[in-house]
Design a protein around this nucleic acid. Structure first.
Lengths: 336, 336
DNA sequence: GGCAGTAGTGGAAGCGCTCTCAACGTACTC
DNA sequence: GAGTACGTTGAGAGCGCTTCCACTACTGCC
């Protein structure tokens, strides 16, 4: 078995340097490249990653930091879809992924990430308004791409969607379909998505000159908070509920049903995320598609670019959202 | 900032070799060790992993292979708990984890794992009776520890529980509490756990001279199969249902309820796994505790040992199971 | 006192690769 | 035909660490 580039060089009758060039897409004549590549293929040779990393200073491994409870990670499909998007994109770029979950304190996690001297860069979720881990990574010299961003992160590289705009559009859709008492169950307060979606909702209500003070209930992106929030809102006589995400909507749907009300005839229901299950609810859920996998993939590609050109301009990407209108908001008439 | 062991050697007035010994718990006098360690701590020095790996031939990274659908991975708490157990144990051993999920074909996954030349060893779930990926890893010279094992794997290193024995014990418990028509909803056929648990059930029934032919329904470890299986078994007039895992039991419980039957008064219900939610069902579920996190941790420790002593004897560990008796099987009387 | 045995230490040879630099054509220009 | 430019190649110097080997200084023993 061929274990080193030297043996390979001997086998193909060129120098070690030339083999290295073939392996790294350096400048080599076509004839030589073909000859060497044939030997590489025949012997199924793979360069030793540690040697390569030591010599080049690059490891081909990126850190993915999701500082959240691991039970949340495995329960909320948002995170698993994000992870899938990144995982696939990294594999396509033949890079490795090192996952950092919220098992430890932010200080310790930051310390380890910076100390490990292995990572070419990191992708970190910046969902909370206040996050010392994100701050620490941005302050370090490790190339960093955020998923989501706070207003303080405007100069960093990030991938995000325009939550305010999307929530505004959803609320407007509900208004246009004749609803007037539109309730909102927020996401977790203190998170960017939670606050921004609330802002979008308020903006649309305000534009329509409708009060919304008694129509907002705090949630936390989880199903139980959707159920609790819906209970309150239904008591306030809403004709529509806009939930900060799909999981919340599932909880709300359950409570609406339990009260013997129909969706959308009595109450229209909308979510956010368009996770896989949203289309399969009964009735199918109107929601905002935000391409979670695409966000993950985009973050990877932004990071690759940042690693390649460390002094280049930060890459700031706002991915489009799409209003996905399904039966949970249309086809019925408001109760009033 | 101190970036190399040489600078550190100069700073502490010893040779590079001695610093390396301090870093790797080699034989160094106490005085020297303290002196060097002080400098290490003060400068917060971390050796470069690639250099270390290149020189030593060890990477400190282990592969974790779970060749299953990723939606299953993120839905079934069994896998996430297993992952948590491994993740924690690896972190304690300051080793890294490279995760290989079922995104690609087994052939390609195997090819990549063996080609990457980075892994010190792998931990792989061997849940299916027939698995070319497991076979390939065992045949390679990469230290490998299985979680679960087939009868063909008796010479490999593995961590497992005695499914047959545990299922027998559970069935016996049901018999001893007066049940006679005990149904069993199997796990996925073709998996070790599915087949072995069925065997244990059959063994206990046979010992009690009870027929079980019309009392076994195939399931697949998932909630819907529990619901479907329970529907069939209830039609056959069972007074107890032993489900191959907790998720299945959740489905069964729902159907039992829908029929207006009481647990355990009319039908006793038992699961397997003792996942976190089992204790919080209504009524709390009798089940078999198999310490999923412990299995993950044990697999890591077995692998560490195997890496340290590659020619040592395989480590075969059967972890104990525990019958956890809760209200779903006791406190009521059989319907008959 | 001489000897073997044993810690503790330093020197130096790599681990397998990348990448700079210089050398070598070959082609093209004047 | 000399000079320039360019594309292609090889030699060799590391990247930062581990580890073998040799050496010293000490200990205990006959």
């Amino acid at each position: 078995m061929v274990r080193t580039i030297d043996e390979l060089a001997k086998l193909s009758g060129v120098s070690r340097a030339t083999v290295s060039r073939v392996l790294n897409n350096g400048s080599v004549s076509d004839a030589t490249r073909r000859r060497v590549q044939a030997v590489v293929d025949r012997t199924n040779f793979r360069p030793h990653p540690a040697a390569r990393s030591l010599a080049s200073g690059r490891s081909g491994v990126v850190g993915v930091v999701m500082h959240i409870d691991s039970h949340l990670l495995f329960r909320d499909p948002y995170f698993s879809q994000l992870l899938q998007g990144m995982s696939d994109a990294l594999a396509d770029g033949s890079a490795g992924m090192m996952l950092w979950l919220g098992n430890r304190s932010k200080e310790e996690t930051l310390d380890r990430i910076l100390g490990i001297r292995l990572l070419d860069g990191v992708i970190v979720t910046a969902h909370n308004l206040d996050d010392s881990l994100v701050d620490g990574l941005l302050a370090s010299d490790l190339p960093t791409v955020l998923i989501g961003h706070r207003s303080a992160d405007r100069t960093a590289s990030y991938v995000d969607v325009d939550h305010v705009h999307a929530a505004d559009a959803m609320t407007t859709h509900l208004l246009e379909s004749g609803r007037r008492r539109i309730g909102h169950i927020t996401g977790m307060r203190g998170t960017v998505a939670g606050e921004d979606r609330l802002t979008g909702y308020r903006r649309a209500m305000h534009r329509a000159r409708l009060a919304s003070d008694d129509l907002v209930v705090d949630g936390d992106f989880n199903e139980p908070s959707g159920a609790a929030g819906a209970a309150v809102l239904l008591d306030h006589g809403v004709d529509a509920i806009f939930c900060a995400n799909d999981a919340t909507a599932v909880g709300a749907l359950r409570v609406i049903r339990e009260r013997g009300l129909r969706v959308p005839e009595d109450v229209a229901l909308a979510g956010f995320d368009d996770l896989d299950f949203a289309a399969h609810l009964d009735p199918p859920l109107t929601t905002v598609r935000q391409g979670v996998r695409e966000q993950g993939a985009q973050a990877v590609s932004s990071l690759f670019q940042l690693v390649r050109d460390r002094d280049g301009a930060p890459s700031r990407v706002i991915l489009p959202t799409e209003l996905v209108i399904r039966q949970s908001t249309v086809g019925g008439v408001p109760r009033a």
